[in-house]
Each structure stands twice: as C-alpha cells, then as structure tokens.
Design a protein around this nucleic acid. Structure first.
Lengths: 144, 144
DNA sequence: ATTAATGCAAACACTTTGCAATGGA
DNA sequence: TCCATTGCAAAGTGTTTGCATTAAT
C-alpha cells in the first residue's frame, strides 16, 4: 500500500479513498463483503460493484494482494511485502507470520517451473475458538 | 485414499466407484467440474450433485483432502499424506512437492493458536506456459 | 470537456439442497 | 425391505459485467 494515494495513478473518488483508508494498516485480511459492510454505514452510496472493481484495480496496481486462504471467499491484504499466514480453521481468522523460513526448492523438484514466489500457511485453532470450544476434530483436520 | 473401498464404510454405488477409481493415484488435483466432465462420458447418469456430495463424503471420511489453492474453485487431492504444492499461476496446474521443509514456528509467533498443520505453496510458470508465452508480468506477480 | 468511475441489476460461476425415485445392503 | 444415494432443478453464495448516470481530472 502506498503512502500517498496520489502516486497510485487512479482517480481518487470518495469511495476509493474510503476503501484505501479502510485497508491502510488493516491486519484483518478482510473479504469484499467485510469491506462493503463496514463502509456502507458511513458511505451509504458505496456499492458492491465499486468495492469489487476497486479491489481489482488496487490489485492490478500492486497496492494489495489477494489471498486464496479461505476456500469460500477471497480475502485481501494491504501488506504486499513477503510474509506468511496462520489461519484459524474454525472462525477463519487470519494472522500474519513474520518469521522467515528457508524455502529453497531443489532444482530437480521444480519440475522445470520458473519459480516466482512462495507462501506458507499454518493452520490451527485461535485462542477464542479454543476457549469457547468452537472446534471439532474435523476443524482440526480440515486445512481450510 | 484407501486400498479397499469397502473399508471406507459407505455404500459403494457405481457412481462412487467411478469417482474413487478416477481419484485413485490421480495427481492432477482435479476440481469437481473436472471429475464430472471426465466421468460423464462413461457414466451418462453421473450428476453434479453426486460428484459434490461424494466428494464431501470422502472428505469427511478422510479419504481425500480439499485444496484452497485455486481462488476460483476447490481442488481435490487423493493424497492425504503431508506434502506441498507448486502452482502454475497461468494455467493453474498443480504439482506435488515432496521435499520436506523445516516449518518450526516459534512459540511466541503462534499467537496462542493451537497449531494443527501447515502447507507450503510455491508459485511459478510451468514449462508449457513458459514455452507458449502464456504468461505476463501480472501472472508472475499474482500468487494465485 | 473528457473520460473514467459509479450504482444498479442482471448475469455468471461454483456449490449446496429439497425431494421424489431408485437401488445397495 | 429399508434407508442411503441418486438425478434433477431450484436456490444459495460470491463475483463480474453492461449500461446509463455521475463526477474527478
């Protein structure tokens, strides 16, 4: 995410500024629906279409990244620097993992792919779900 | 995936046997649609509903796992043992990575989660897409 | 003034579900 | 026989798109 929105090179409409402001420093890895729901109260004219198209635009500009961490919906991350994630398989909360890992892939394991990146996901049960017993054996086996 | 299907403990209908046979040793990480398309020719009565419900049943029985590697559709893997994946961000081909990684997560990084598993995904461009120039800068930045 | 962005609603893609009919066990 | 499974079609999610209107530059 950029410091000054003008540098992004897109028209700064009130809707886009609201979305940019919402995402700035946001560590919740929100879905499009999360964003719409939270912003619609304050910006009644905010539409789903605008949220979706703005997210697509910001992604194309490299301002945010799209996570396929949740099998049921896309989640968005304003932190585009290299990092990994820890996911609660019960409530789908996602938290950042900033410790680095050595993910050197032996040349002969790469199947002649041109490797461009990697991502580690840890699965688990978050403290809240644990405390409230909101988890089952299935949740624990399920890796999102 | 089990050696003898009887051990799974489900009714072995022709449709389920077809799906089980299709998945056995399958390294393509097919989607429900892939499975339906490939089997429908041979088993004309095979329906989408049966594919979906059978996949859900097999997953609940622990015979297959569901991957959220592809943001647009669920992919299924009959290999339920611990392994990782390499994904072509252009054609969405998924290949197995069997080399192990040390993914020890420091206690203080786990945010009090009860860790239950992990998964590494590598992104890249497969040889076919590379050869046919079926990739863009966007594809290479896109991490599925 | 130009041209891109907006809101709406319809369309789309993937998945799930209700229900009567079927067929394994 | 009995009850789970099937196929169909409808419904349910999440996402994208066409288009007339609006507004940022």
């Amino acid at each position: 995410m950029m410091a000054k929105y003008k540098d992004i090179g897109i028209k700064l409409t009130p809707q886009r500024l609201a979305i940019l402001g919402y995402l700035e420093g946001n560590k919740a890895h929100p879905s499009a629906e999360d964003i719409y729901n939270d912003l619609h109260a304050k910006y009644p004219t905010m539409s789903f279409a605008t949220v979706y198209t703005t997210l697509a635009t910001l992604r194309a500009k490299g301002c945010i990244s799209e996570l396929s961490i949740d099998p049921d919906k896309k989640r968005f991350d304003p932190n585009t620097s290299d990092h990994n994630h820890l996911i609660c398989t019960s409530c789908k909360r996602v938290v950042d993992i900033t410790v680095p890992f050595d993910l050197t892939l032996p040349e002969d394991s790469a199947s002649d792919f041109m490797i461009t990146g990697s991502h580690v996901e840890f699965f688990g049960i978050c403290p809240e779900c644990k405390k409230n017993n909101r988890y089952s054996r299935e949740d624990m086996e399920k890796c999102v």
